[in-house]
Design a protein around this nucleic acid. Structure first.
Length: 345
DNA sequence: AACGCGGGGAC
DNA sequence: GTCCCAGCGTT
């Protein structure tokens, strides 16, 4: 009997993954629902974010905003409060805008196809594919980091995944192995395989359901894939803040939606001459972001006079708050840490 | 095509 | 320290 070429038996790979998923799917909260609004929120939360990091944020978010209508009518500050600590804050801003988009452009009904979902702010091809396949059984591969890794290994393909053309390229590869039925499960199977088995480091090839279909495994080159050319360089950046206080109150402002920490709250970044004499100390904290090394110096300014404190706030359009109240706002991580340290002494 | 955008976990 | 994560928007 002639042996079938295992590397060209593409569809079999997809079927194996579906079978594997049936038995090994992770038990995750969003897998109990096909509510497109919830799946959408989940997908946005999990962009560039590990499941363990995003899980609680997802649960809290859909508990507070259970429907697209409830999200659309919320204040952006509260939406950001529920996003606190997740990073990439434009995701929350776009999520909020897109909820209003659903109310206005889609009559309050969440769109039910890839091309319509794609119109939502903050939704790209990956997210539109994930939601439409999971909730509406649309056969479209959700090409994310897991997909790049799994496919480039299975086919031992050195196509540069950091190239803008990678999406289209791997999309075609994905269609080769994607079964007609259960596209949502297929996409989630790739995600689970990528995060549990076909990991960037320490891949668990011994227990991989498609080990015998994997060209990289057979040639002992699993760790050579995926190929990624783009290099990220961290830049050093200095920020200076003024922590202006009177008794237990202090002054904050809201950031704009450019640069880092969009729409989050922080402290004034400058002071007028008259306050220079009231600076009592300066602390420096360091904070590492993915592409930035931040050096943040914070000068403490203590005012003794209530009236001048309030007048200063009004003149420079700063909000007066206290520690208790500041919990209703979303602050960047390093500033949250600073506040915590300041008030827990 | 290249870059900006957070925070955290694994190694 | 490095890499990467259920990516997207802007230029």
């Amino acid at each position: 009997m002639k042996k079938k070429n295992k590397y060209t038996d593409f569809l079999n790979i997809g079927l194996k993954l579906l079978k594997w998923y049936d038995l090994n799917a992770r038990d995750l909260p969003w897998r109990k629902t096909k509510n497109p609004y919830h799946i959408w929120v989940c997908e946005i939360v999990l962009q560039q974010t590990r499941v363990e990091q995003g899980k609680n944020h997802y649960l809290n978010f859909v508990e507070r905003f259970p429907t697209v209508e409830s999200l659309s009518s919320a204040e952006i500050d509260e939406v950001l409060l529920y996003w606190k600590g997740l990073g990439y804050y434009s995701r929350a801003i776009n999520l909020h805008k897109a909820a209003q988009q659903v109310m206005e452009d889609f009559g309050g009904t969440f769109p039910d196809s890839f091309s319509e979902i794609l119109k939502l702010k903050g939704v790209g091809k990956y997210t539109a594919a994930a939601v439409s396949s999971i909730c509406f059984e649309e056969k479209v591969p959700a090409i994310d980091g897991n997909f790049y890794r799994v496919l480039s290994r299975v086919f031992a393909d050195d196509f540069d995944v950091s190239s803008p053309k990678a999406y289209a390229y791997f999309y075609e590869l994905a269609l080769l192995i994607m079964p007609e039925e259960n596209p949502g499960n297929f996409n989630q199977a790739i995600m689970d395989l990528g995060s549990e088995i076909c990991k960037p480091k320490n891949p668990q090839c011994e227990i991989c359901p498609i080990q015998e279909n994997c060209l990289a495994y057979e040639t002992g080159k699993v760790l050579e894939f995926p190929v990624k050319s783009k290099k990220v360089k961290a830049v050093d950046l200095k920020l200076h803040y003024y922590y202006i206080m009177y008794e237990d109150k202090f002054l904050i402002k809201q950031r704009d939606d450019s640069f880092i920490w969009k729409k989050l709250y922080d402290f004034p970044e400058s002071i007028s001459q008259e306050l220079e004499n009231f600076v009592v100390e300066e602390k420096t904290v360091y904070h590492k972001l993915t592409h930035k090394n931040l050096e943040i110096s914070i000068s403490k300014v203590i005012l003794q006079d209530k009236t001048s404190f309030e007048k200063y706030a009004q003149k420079h359009q700063l909000q007066i708050t206290d520690y208790e109240n500041s919990h209703q706002k979303s602050f960047p991580k390093p500033l949250e840490n600073y506040l915590k340290k300041t008030f827990e002494n």
